[in-house]
């Protein structure tokens, strides 16, 4: 792609909507990003922040639109990660316009069952 990072910065962004839930020692993010292909996803962790950016293919603005209702702009959102998230184990998957990010909780914070031994 010929877009420079500066150009990207200037583009309008919208927050992707989605679901966030915790289950079985993982925090799952499911974000709706229609029109964003797997290669156009930029997902990174910087310090305590998880930065998600999905670049949409720009439609030619000069085309003659008969109906125009879809939202425009790239998807971007930053989430703050707390100490319970294992930064080294983050998985992501892009499927049918939905980005699924799996964040694993650190083993130390997972509930652990301590066996009581009977004497």
């Amino acid at each position: 792609m010929a877009t420079t990072s500066k150009e990207l910065e200037a583009r309008r962004t919208v927050r992707p909507v989605g679901n966030i839930w915790e289950e079985d020692g993982t925090v799952m993010l499911r974000l709706e990003m229609p029109g964003v292909s797997k290669n156009d996803i930029d997902l990174r962790v910087e310090n305590d922040q998880l930065i998600v950016r999905g670049t949409r293919q720009v439609e030619d603005e000069n085309k003659s639109y008969v109906i125009r209702e879809r939202a425009r702009g790239d998807f971007a959102q930053t989430y703050t990660l707390d100490d319970t998230i294992d930064r080294e184990r983050i998985e992501a998957k892009m499927e049918r316009g939905i980005l699924t990010v799996t964040l694993h909780l650190k083993d130390a914070v997972k509930p652990r069952k301590i066996e009581v031994k009977a004497r």
């Binding site: 499911r30 709706e32 990003m33 229609p34 029109g35 439609e59 085309k63 003659s64 639109y65 008969v66 109906i67 125009r68 209702e69 879809r70 939202a71 049918r96 316009g97 939905i98």
Partner: peptide, 21 residues
């Protein structure tokens, strides 16, 4: 939501359906 674009020899309709099989 839908977009419809007219071009010389065709129309293109685009519809966002994230997560729809």
């Amino acid at each position: 939501a839908i977009d419809v674009v007219e071009e010389e020899d065709h129309f293109t309709a685009m519809c966002d359906l994230p997560g729809v099989d």
